[in-house]
Design a protein around this nucleic acid. Sequence first.
RNA 1: GCCGGGUUGGCCGAGCGGUUCAGGCAGCGGGCUGCAGACCCGUAGACGGGGGUUCGAGUCCCCCACCCGGCUCCA
Length: 475
Amino acid sequence: MTAFAEIKVYNTLSKSLEKFIPLHGKRVFMFVCGPTVYDYSHLGHARTYVFYDTLARFLRKMDYSLFYLQNITDVDDKIVNRARDEGRHPLELAREFENYYHDDMAALNVTSVNLYARASDYLPEIFEQVRALIEKGHAYVTETGVYFDITTFPDYGKLSGQKPEELRVHRIEPDPTKRNPGDFALWRNRPREEFGWESPWGYGRPGWHIEDTAISIKHFGKQYDIHGGAIELAFPHHEAEIAQAESYTGVKPFVKYWIHTGLLTVEGEKMSKSLGNFVTIREALKEYDPNVLRIFLLSRHYRSPIDFRWELLDQAKSSYERILNGYGNLMDMDIVEEASEREAIFLEEVSRIRRRFFEAMMDDLNTAEALAQLFELVRAVNSYYEERGQITAESRVEVIAAFTDMFNVLGLRIGGGYDESMLRNLVSILIDVRAVLRKRKEYDLADEIRARLREIGIELQDIPEGTKWRLKGRT
RNA sequence: GCCGGGUUGGCCGAGCGGUUCAGGCAGCGGGCUGCAGACCCGUAGACGGGGGUUCGAGUCCCCCACCCGGCUCCA
């Protein structure tokens, strides 16, 4: 798109809406906290990653050259514990679920990530950062590991608004060897029977926070543009990343824009593995088209919580079918040579709607409003279709472009992707057969053909001019 | 306790002081139809509670209520 465009994003660091001005012109670097791969991913993960995928698509559409980096946490207590219970190697288990994760993301059309980086591949960088933090006096070694001393970093808490001295509630007993209860682990010594590495400070595993700064600093250097993740990670995880990185490099701010997504809840409670109230992505995809899931997830602003209910996917499915139908109506229009006045009005409307779509996205990624504009486009097409039913080839290209712009930014896979001509030929044969049957008033058989096609996601619509058909997605 | 966030019609959700308060789903009336669906036209319906600021407030300020998240496992 264009240079005049001004994107605004909400920055957790400043707690305000800011103009998006990257550090290096059109070059943008984005890091998003990826999953810990010890189980199947659920709809909460889908929410987060569909959003950042949409952000990435949008930035690229706005002519930014974006590098999107995501870590894969494959070194973690949960992985080690599950692997131990199943008698497997932790990295082998992690690799299995990482593959499932990639499958799920591919199914959801999350295709924008340039590089997935596994924590286990960054031990040298982790060692280097821990070593330097100790050397600079920001970290100290005890018999249980290496800890970051938060009193050496006065900004600790600037992202989340937390004051270390007020954090009195601890879910886990603080390690008694730490100087302050809020100090976080950079390296944790573990028994030799457990999976781990030899380090200068003992045998064990890295702390969770250092894995991410090892990866991001290695690829992006001392400073980059966007760091994303769900809001639950703001404290302590992202706070710790800031403390580590800014202490290590001496450059502030480590990240210019901190963007956080709201959580997906179920009956008001966070969807999570530990609560057992989760629906995996693959479960949901058994029942619903990926486009339906994306529409559902993008129908609310990214910072607000979404409360999940299956019924809402049904609603999203109906919305999706409306989009498919409108797009289909556009494809059904007869081509004419001369543009009418009505067509000119229609085209103006389309271009206004397209502009509003992008304005909505520029306004802190207002995907709900953007979707509303997509529906406006559908309505405009339907009205025009009803009134005229014909269009010049040039105009249709224009309108298709408006649709595909929106589909691409929202990550909806609509149009193309299968052998359309074969499908069309097949369906038209069946339609012809039904026309004969209907003429003979053999409605039973005609209805059965219609019903059976419907079962496989093809819906026939008998209208005065004959019969048209639509793909309705899976049922 | 401290720090964040939320509360808009039957359901989901935009909205960031001012044309009739988006859009989707469901509903109602009509058109079209062998029937159904789809589509088109029309239609109804909401701002958690109480104060305040203002000519004017879902929209700003204060108080209250309820809900959620974080407080070193979590997208």
